[in-house]
Simulated assay, not measured.
Amino acid sequence: MRIGEVARLSGCSPETIRHYEKLGLLETPLRSTSGYRRYDVAAVDRLGFIRHGRELGLDLRAIGELLALADHPDADCRAVDRIASRHLERIEARIASLQQLAEELRAMVTQCRGGRVAECRIIEALFRRGTEIQSPE
């Protein structure tokens, strides 16, 4: 298959596919006599793996580690568990942070009931919060 077909099947753009090749996440394919990259079904599967990992929020480093482990199917999967657990911890921390942000925004919204911007509690709270951030020394 040529890169356009692989892009269509995998949902990745040709530029993304070439980027993954440069990063070593996807093997550099053989080229046809006319110089076109020629991919096999395994490349489409691998791109699907990468794409799904990205949808789950995994960074390319973690995806690379998982792909390296997947290339050795008889190896112990504890490393896979560690990568997934580490990512889950980050997601849960992000969720907690977002919940705290939602509470802060909810409090600001309930304090604002129209009127002039000069008297807006949301604007006031944002300015107050901004001054709490310390500038680098």
Rank of each mutant, 00 (worst) to 15 (best):
1 M>I: 05
4 G>C: 03
6 V>C: 02
7 A>H: 08
14 P>C: 06
16 T>E: 02
16 T>C: 04
17 I>M: 00
21 E>K: 03
22 K>F: 08
24 G>F: 07
25 L>V: 01
28 T>A: 15
29 P>T: 01
29 P>G: 03
30 L>E: 14
31 R>I: 05
34 S>W: 10
36 Y>N: 08
37 R>I: 05
38 R>L: 14
38 R>T: 13
41 V>P: 06
41 V>C: 03
42 A>K: 13
42 A>V: 12
44 V>W: 02
45 D>H: 13
49 F>K: 02
50 I>L: 06
50 I>S: 03
50 I>C: 03
51 R>D: 00
51 R>W: 03
56 L>F: 05
56 L>M: 10
58 L>Q: 04
59 D>Q: 08
59 D>G: 11
61 R>C: 12
61 R>G: 14
62 A>Q: 12
64 G>Q: 05
65 E>N: 10
67 L>C: 01
68 A>W: 03
68 A>R: 12
69 L>A: 10
69 L>V: 06
69 L>M: 14
70 A>D: 09
70 A>Q: 11
73 P>V: 03
76 D>N: 07
79 A>C: 09
79 A>F: 05
84 A>T: 07
84 A>E: 04
85 S>V: 08
85 S>W: 06
87 H>T: 01
93 A>I: 07
94 R>G: 12
99 Q>G: 12
100 Q>Y: 12
101 L>C: 14
104 E>Q: 14
105 L>V: 13
105 L>Y: 09
106 R>Q: 15
112 C>F: 06
112 C>M: 07
113 R>L: 12
114 G>E: 11
117 V>P: 13
117 V>Y: 13
122 I>S: 04
122 I>L: 03
124 E>Y: 11
126 L>I: 10
126 L>F: 05
127 F>P: 00
128 R>D: 09
130 G>D: 09
132 E>L: 10
134 Q>M: 10
